[in-house]
Amino acid sequence: MKQKESVLVGISIGDLNGIGPEIIIKAYEDPRSLELNTPVIFASGKTMQFFKNHFKSKINFHNIDSVDKAVLGKVNVVNVWNEAVNVDFGKEDTKIGEYAIKSLEAATNALKEDAIDVLVTAPINKHNIQSDTFKFPGHTDYLAQALNGKSLMFMVSEGLRVGLLTDHVPLKDATNAITEELIKEKLATVIKSLKQDFGIRKPKVAVLAINPHAGDNGVIGNEDDMVLKPALEKIKADGTLVYGPYSADSFFGSNTYKNFDAIMASYHDQGLIPFKTIAFGQGVNYTAGLDKVRTSPDHGTAYEIAGQGIADESSLKQAIFTAIQIFRNRRAHNHYSKNPLKKMSR
């Protein structure tokens, strides 16, 4: 049962052979972590007991069969499966991938039904989750379909926010994927998110060029001149504060990014390499553009250290905090949007 002051945080377990279960346990080991939220982990009591024993944790799990039986102030575990699972730390296993999807689907259904307030996803292995019924390159694409929205991969930290025009797209296909329609759609999503999710009234967004040096007037490709610049000019015409395209090579090193509320990168590594260099361990992957709130840590399964008890839970804790903050910001934004006089009087 929910109450106003406690946000119900659904957590999908991710890859059981990776570090997901370890960082979830560490995030809630301290009872003070339950003051602002109530976690609901989608896995099984038997599986979480295995991890508790392995990591010699003192955490107490409250096992339940449905979300409506969650108890405030407890670390709740919904039994998505009941059988024992063979965990082999650091190994890629298609059977483990099946459990990751079972957890994700159960958590997503709970989110759709408003049984939980927000969803935080532990890392998955994008290869071992593939099957005849699950053919998505990751969480973002799956959630966009499951929640009937147009999602945006938005990497956020305290001092930096990076969105992507193209995310899990092969580099050879990224240029052709960037169209005027896509640019308008993604930038509109970022602008809306900055306003309703982060409380920024008049956001400023910088856009990174597709080609080196923004194409150097066509010497190094014409996509920036033919596609990106015209699209940005049309978007600017209605007063939206978008700037660029900026040459990506010096944009972050010169600290130019600090002048903007968000950066839109043209492709995955153009945005994520600088983001993870600057904010790794404190960054959060946020799926903007949906009616529901979903975040995740900014790292993967980390098979190389799985089971050793040395995984850093900082990014997961930040993902939980960010999800709670966005949930509250949205609630306030929606309230004031419906009651503009109250906003003006403040």
Rank of each mutant, 00 (worst) to 15 (best):
R32S: 15
K112W: 00
F275H: 02
A70S: 14
G253L: 14
H268F: 05
N148K: 12
S33C: 12
P203Y: 09
L208V: 09
Y142E: 01
M264P: 05
I200G: 03
I191F: 13
F327T: 02
A265C: 10
N334R: 12
I64Q: 09
G149K: 07
M153Q: 01
G14D: 00
D224Q: 14
V80D: 01
T277F: 11
G239K: 12
H268K: 06
R346V: 12
G283K: 00
I273A: 14
K184C: 10
R294I: 03
N109D: 13
N109R: 11
K26E: 11
G300V: 02
M264R: 06
E180H: 11
V77E: 04
T256W: 05
V85N: 04
L272A: 05
A177M: 12
E233R: 12
V120E: 00
L143I: 02
N259L: 13
R328W: 09
E92M: 13
A288L: 06
D197G: 06
I210L: 15
L316A: 03
A209M: 07
G199D: 10
F50K: 13
F89D: 06
T38N: 06
I41T: 04
H335C: 10
I235K: 05
Q325R: 13
T179P: 05
H127V: 12
L16W: 02
I178R: 03
G289P: 03
V190K: 03
V78K: 01
T94E: 15
